[in-house]
């Protein structure tokens, strides 16, 4: 039977991991989902340690929660933290059908797996004592699972090759230097003095604020295309409104 400490740990961490796993399913933002996975993985690591597999537990923490999930977060942030899943249902009734089928599968699995009985207290004490935790693992990996271990390398090479094929943009020709850029501008005869700089306002770091043309309209040329694509460009109207009504600005400022 399980000891009291183990039972307490299990019930507390187990419920937390279920909650964070549900968070993965229902989070609207990718960052929250990724954090949910990282948290679940970390708790799994603690479980492994609790069951007498410290090496596996630590690797789980380091590799999954630490490295993989953090890489995931980086990617999510590169793509844009603000991007969230579209919840438009393209196939009618799909959500209900999915729910029905998932519940059916869940009921089947719980019904079948719930029937098993486990006798005794399986643990790793004997193995941890005689060859040792890590040695036992090494013996399995380089013993009977050596073929699996070796062919997994093919998977890693494929992944690396795939990343190169799909994401590595090789430069075609020389990278133009400043002199070359200047020459091109004069050749074309437009933006001879460079593109307009973004507008500068005292209260902002102004890369997202377009410069205003003499007639007051913003010029898109002054703002990075990435910001435009993400729709993160500030509207100049905001600031002209502030100019018309300075009292509110002053009040807001004193409240800060």
């Amino acid at each position: 039977m399980t000891g009291t400490a183990e039972a307490v740990t299990f019930w507390i961490l187990g419920s937390l991991s279920v909650l964070s796993a549900l968070g993965l399913l229902f989070a609207r933002k990718a960052v929250h989902a990724a954090l949910g996975v990282a948290f679940t993985m970390a708790i799994l690591g603690i479980f492994y340690i609790g069951q007498g597999a410290p090496f596996l537990g630590v690797v789980q923490m380091f590799v999954y929660s630490g490295a993989v999930m953090m890489l995931f977060l980086f990617v999510v942030m590169l793509i844009g933290v603000d991007s969230s899943d579209s919840l438009v249902e393209t196939l009618k009734g799909q959500r209900w059908l999915t729910l029905l089928l998932s519940l059916g599968l869940g009921a089947l699995l719980i019904g079948m797996i719930g029937r098993i009985t486990v006798t005794g207290t399986p643990n790793l004490n004997a193995i941890n004592a005689s060859p040792g935790n890590i040695s036992a693992m090494a013996e399995v990996i380089f013993g009977k699972y050596v073929w699996v271990f070796e062919i997994t390398s093919a998977l890693l090479i494929t992944a690396a090759l795939g990343a190169m094929v799909l994401a590595h943009r090789e430069r075609m020709g020389e990278k133009p230097n400043q002199r070359e850029w200047a020459r091109r501008r004069f050749q074309r005869g437009e933006f001879v003095s460079g593109l307009p700089a973004p507008g500068v306002y005292a209260r902002h770091n102004a890369v997202d604020t377009p410069a205003l043309l003499p007639d007051g309209t913003p010029t898109e040329l002054s703002v990075s295309r990435t910001l435009q694509a993400r729709d993160q460009v500030a509207r100049p109207g905001l600031f002209s409104a502030a100019e018309h009504d300075p009292h509110q600005e002053i009040e807001e400022g004193s409240a800060r």
């Binding site: 005794g120 399986p122 004997a126 193995i127 005689s130 060859p131 036992a136 013996e139 399995v140 380089f142 013993g143 009977k144 050596v146 073929w147």
Partner: peptide, 13 residues
């Protein structure tokens, strides 16, 4: 409960 791991290292043939 049978132990799943070999006690001594055996090289896969």
């Amino acid at each position: 409960m049978t132990t799943l791991l070999p006690t001594a290292f055996t090289v896969a043939e």
